[in-house]
């Protein structure tokens, strides 16, 4: 679990996970195109994420595709979140999302 937290404690690596969450199974070249980082830096970050098992790769024809592997995150969730807390947390999460998107719309219309 140490490796997971260490891997997550970096904004660029979280950004890489965000990109894979949005569109799973991307090549290194594609990921480099999306982020303002050198190819070398992206490679290094992906290696840390892979060592933490948060990213896994699959060879597909000639390409090496990167996938977000959420299993270690599920293990963290299972460790600290109880069965009966899930519906309430999910409801709170939805509420936060709704209110914040509403704010965003309001700000946009005010401008």
């Amino acid at each position: 679990m140490n490796a997971v937290f260490k891997a997550l404690a970096d904004e660029s690596r979280r950004k890489l996970l965000d990109e894979l969450h949005r569109d799973n199974g991307q090549t290194l070249t594609r990921l480099c195109g999306l982020l303002d980082m050198t190819r070398q830096a992206v490679t290094k970050h992906l290696a840390v994420l892979e060592a933490a098992n948060l990213v896994t790769t699959v060879r597909c024809g000639r390409e090496k595709l990167h996938y977000l592997n959420p299993v270690p995150l599920q293990e963290i969730y299972d460790r600290w979140i109880g069965k009966y807390e899930r519906p309430r947390l999910s409801a709170l999460g939805d509420l936060k999302k709704d209110l914040e998107s509403e704010n965003l719309t309001k700000t946009k219309t005010n401008h």
Partner: peptide, 8 residues
């Protein structure tokens, strides 16, 4: 291209 790949 696979849709999901999970590793444990």
């Amino acid at each position: 291209k696979p849709s999901f790949v999970y590793v444990s």
